[in-house]
């Protein structure tokens, strides 16, 4: 019981720390100033910010929402939602 408690709690804590680090990383990416002192991001930085957000969303779905243990239809549906949404956002951003 203690081993199970320790391993499942450690996983949640590890995911939590990872998402916090990714949040700080994405803020740093979005904190560049251009020559006129305004915040800006290059296309590559914007793509990196979106990628970090996608990883955080997948971490929440897979681990906090326990979709990793869910029926196959739910795993496919949620991954499809993330993939479809991010693909659409990136296409519209780059268009």
């Amino acid at each position: 019981m203690n081993r199970l408690r320790s391993s499942s709690g450690s996983r949640v804590n590890a995911i939590w720390v990872l998402t916090l680090v990714l949040t700080l990383g994405s803020v740093l990416l979005a904190s560049h100033h251009n020559s006129s002192g305004r915040l800006t991001t290059s296309t590559a930085e914007a793509m990196a910010v979106l990628a970090l957000a996608a990883v955080k969303v997948l971490c929440i779905i897979w681990n906090f929402m326990e979709v990793r243990d869910a029926p196959r239809w739910l795993r496919h549906w949620t991954i499809g939602w993330v993939g479809g949404l991010w693909l659409t956002i990136v296409v519209v951003y780059l268009y």
């Binding site: 979005a30 991001t41 910010v49 970090l52 957000a53 951003y93």
Partner: peptide
């Protein structure tokens, strides 16, 4: 997602 789209992506 809201944070990324509204606050971060420029």
């Amino acid at each position: 997602v809201i944070f990324a789209l509204l606050y971060l992506v420029r």
